[in-house]
Amino acid sequence: MKRFLIPLGLFLTLVVFLAIGLNRDPHEVPSPLVGKPAPAFSLEKLAEPGKTFSPADMQGQVWLLNVWASWCVSCRAEHPLLVAFSKQGGLPIVGLNYKEVRGDGGIDAKKLSLADETSLTRQRAGAWLSQHGDPYTLSVLDMDGRVGIDYGVYGVPETYLIDKKGVIRFKQIGPITPEALEKKILPLARQLAAES
């Protein structure tokens, strides 16, 4: 009798593991950048042509770096949450506008000059923000996606929580959910704000 119970036993063990697995997110890959200084960059601001921003400007503040683009469908899903969050004035959010023109499948960016691409980027990104609301303290333009590479962006949107010393402390891949904001980002941000 006993040996005929072996298949059942094996199966029940499998079910336990599957049940635990259900509560995990396979896409939640630990980023090697967490715990490392945020890669430096200097990019032109969306609202003020000619002026640049770099992460060093945020020294001494806890802030969010949010990667977005107007062609990104999930960004639109995430956006209302960011707008609401910015109205509460919790944390400064810097937007990294990622490959606004080159990332869009409908446009052949190779045919555009750099100046044309820059003005098209400004026009598209600006229009999108005035339509959907602007939660950002400021946005910068990463037209060729090189800064994105430094940050290991592999899906838009992505969001980085950066501490007072400029170290990345958390990375959200994909849209920020209300749950992730309440349970992960905000508690961690409060704790970081308390650090000297």
Binding site: M1, F4, L5, P7, L8, F11, L12, V15, L18
Partner: peptide
């Protein structure tokens, strides 16, 4: 569903 179907079948088998 998997647990019920397979679990019941393997119990019947045992």
């Amino acid at each position: 569903f998997l647990a019920v179907v397979v679990g019941a079948s393997l119990t019947l088998f045992a």
